[in-house]
Amino acid sequence: MIKLVDVRKQYKAGEDIIEILHGVSLEVKEGELVAIMGPSGSGKSTIMNIIGLLDWKFSGDYYLGDKKIAGLYDAELASIRNREIGFVFQSFFLLPNFTAAQNVALPLIYAGVSANERKERALAALNKIGMQHLADRRPHEMSGGQQQRVAIARSLIADPKVVLADEPTGALDSKTSQEIMDLIKALNKNDKKTIIIVTHDLKVGKQCDRIIFVKDGDITDKLEEF
C-alpha cells in the first residue's frame, strides 16, 4: 500500500545543508495498523508528512498504492490527500467556527459533493461513531475526546484507504486515549483501513500490528527507551 525506498530529506539552514532523513525505506501493507515511534527530532513527523503528501520535496521513491508519487502538480497532490488519505492530528485541528457536522463535511467540499449529500454523509459518519447528538456543537463545546472523534469522522468521510494519525492520543488522558485507540483499532479491523500512527506512547504502539522505530533519520530495529 505504502512503500518508501531510500527516501532522503534535506533542508538548508543558512549555509549548511542538514539531512533529516538518511535514506529511509519502509513498507506498509494494505489493512495494516502500524505505529511509527521515535524520539523528538528523529524524523518520524517528516516521514509522516511525506507519506501524507504534505511534504513533496524529497529524494527517493514513494509509492502510494500503485502510484509513484513524483513530479505531481499541487492540484493532483490535493486530490490524493482529499480522496485517498485521512488525517488525524494531536490537537484535533477542527475549524473553531464550524459545527461538528460542518467540520466532518469539510473534505467533501473539496471533492465537489453537493450540499445535501455532504450533510447526509457527515451525519452518517457521526452516527457511526456514536456522535450524532453532537452534530451541531462547535469544537469549544466538546471535550477533547469528543473533538478527536469528530476529527476521526472527518478523516474517514471521503472513504480513504489510508489514515495517518499524528499523536492522536497525545492531548488526551489515559482513559480517553484508550477509547480513541479502540476506535482506531475497530476502523482497522472492521473497515480494513490502513492506519499509520505516529506516537511517543509505547502503550499505543504495542496495540498496533507492528512498530517502526526511527532514530536520527534512520529506521532501526532496536527498541530503545524514549
Binding site: A75, A78, S79, R81, R83, F87, R154
Partner: peptide, 16 residues
C-alpha cells in the same frame, strides 16, 4: 494560518 493548513491537508488546492 492553521485553518489554511487544515484545509490544505484535507484536500484544498492552493488555488482554492
Amino acid at each position: 494560518r492553521r485553518e489554511i493548513g487544515i484545509r490544505r491537508a484535507i484536500g484544498a488546492r492552493s488555488i482554492d
